[in-house]
Simulated scan of single mutants.
Amino acid sequence: MTKTATVRARIKPDLKTKVEHIFQKLGLTTTEAINLFYKQVELQQGLPFEVKIPNMTTQKILEKTDQEEELIHCDNLENMFEQLGM
């Protein structure tokens, strides 16, 4: 079957660049990634992931990390475990 349908979407340029870089690392073109997503929606009969509004605690944490507040930087895995007290 030939592929002749077109999908158009407006996306923030920085988001598009970041996501296409991830697709490249995965060995996918944007078209292949969209086809993969559509196929999963078809197979799952819905979105292939859970969609929900984060609770207030998660929202606050996401806002802080977006503003680069209260972040803990680790040099390596061992340093991360040390900072977590493990």
Rank of each mutant, 00 (worst) to 15 (best):
M56V: 14
G46I: 02
I61L: 15
L71T: 03
I61H: 09
G46R: 05
Y38C: 11
Q24W: 05
F37C: 02
D75C: 05
K16W: 06
L26P: 08
M1E: 11
T4K: 13
Q67D: 13
E32H: 02
E42T: 13
R10K: 08
I61M: 15
I34Y: 06
P13R: 08
K3I: 09
T29W: 07
F37H: 01
D66G: 12
E50G: 07
N35G: 08
Y38A: 09
F37D: 01
T6P: 04
E63W: 08
L15F: 12
T6G: 02
L84G: 07
K25A: 09
Q24S: 14
L15Q: 13
V51M: 08
A9K: 04
Q59R: 15
Q83E: 09
M86E: 14
N35F: 00
I22L: 12
N76Q: 06
F23Y: 14
L47Y: 06
L43P: 01
K18P: 00
F23L: 10
M80K: 07
M56L: 13
T58R: 14
Q44H: 14
T17G: 00
G27T: 12
R10G: 03
N79K: 04
N76P: 06
V19S: 10
D14W: 05
L28K: 11
T31P: 01
I34N: 00
D66L: 14
L15P: 10
E20T: 09
M56T: 14
Q24R: 13
I72Y: 10
V41F: 00
Q44Y: 09
K3E: 10
G27I: 11
A9D: 00
M86C: 10
E32F: 05
E42F: 12
P54K: 09
Q40P: 01
H73P: 01
I11A: 02
D14G: 00
F23S: 05
G85R: 05
E20M: 07
P13T: 08
Q83R: 12
G27R: 09
D66C: 11
P48H: 10
I22G: 01
G85F: 03
L43D: 15
N76G: 04
L77S: 05
Q40V: 03
A33E: 10
T31H: 11
I34V: 15
T6F: 01
M80Y: 11
